[in-house]
Design a binder for these strands. Structure first.
Lengths: 122, 122
DNA sequence: CACCTGCATTGATACTCGTCAATATAGATG
DNA sequence: CATCTATATTGACGAGTATCAATGCAGGTG
């Protein structure tokens, strides 16, 4: 079912504690390298202009979902490129993919975006 | 005084409107490429494990500031590498540099981090 | 002024990543 | 099954970047 089950099982707890540390007060322990890597992996998925546009398009669309077939045109990119960015967002847990016939629809995972937001502070 | 005055003057307003668009509702207009580029530039500065560690160290330090000389050791990196990452954070407006004699002290710019946070949603 | 120390810059190297053409796969349809 | 459409994957190429050794520069000290 979920291809990244093992990956998520090992990285999610680390990510949670790491994000908690991101909101730390003076005197507390800073992020170690492993925790910083986990947070960076999440933020890297968002820190790309095309992927920010995709997230924005999904958020602005009625129904909160968008078909992959509607993306290459507004983004001005080839279909494989769009597919690549969608995969990055799905792998990061920020987007959810649902197949309907031959089409693939994508919707946001708000909790995941909230996690990324908390990684930047309080 | 400020080396990036022209850069900031042209990118800051765009960034502000772009970040506002990031919190948009269904039916509103999504980010265009230029706006997404501006937001991505800010987020890319944060989406790096070493720079996340630096931000974390500053946040956890008493007084909310840290000397550059204290960073290479905990980060396990050479001095030029640390200097590079500090420059990226300063250029992004996330860190402020203050020279004291031969030493360089760095402190967070909370409003800038808040801007990055808002770029990820509400 | 000569010297030392801390920070910044340069240049080189290896690696990551965004992009697209070509190809493969999945699902629908005749 | 043959075919068509939408999506995913592969391979290749170029641009960007993280890293460090070497060097330059600024500021303090003798």
């Amino acid at each position: 079912m979920c291809v990244n089950m093992d990956l998520m099982a090992t990285t999610l707890p680390l990510l949670d504690t790491a994000v908690a540390k991101c909101c730390a007060e003076p005197g507390s322990a800073p992020l170690d390298r492993d925790e910083a890597d986990a947070v960076a992996r999440l933020l890297k998925a968002v820190a790309d202009p095309v992927r920010l546009q995709i997230i924005s398009i999904v958020r602005c669309s009625e129904g909160g979902e968008v078909c992959a077939c509607d993306l290459p045109s507004p983004l001005g990119l080839a279909q494989p490129t769009v597919s690549h960015h969608l995969k990055v967002l799905v792998d990061a847990g920020l987007l959810e993919r649902e197949r309907r016939g031959q089409w693939a629809w994508f919707s946001l995972v708000p909790e995941r975006l909230e996690l990324a937001r908390r990684a930047l502070g309080t």
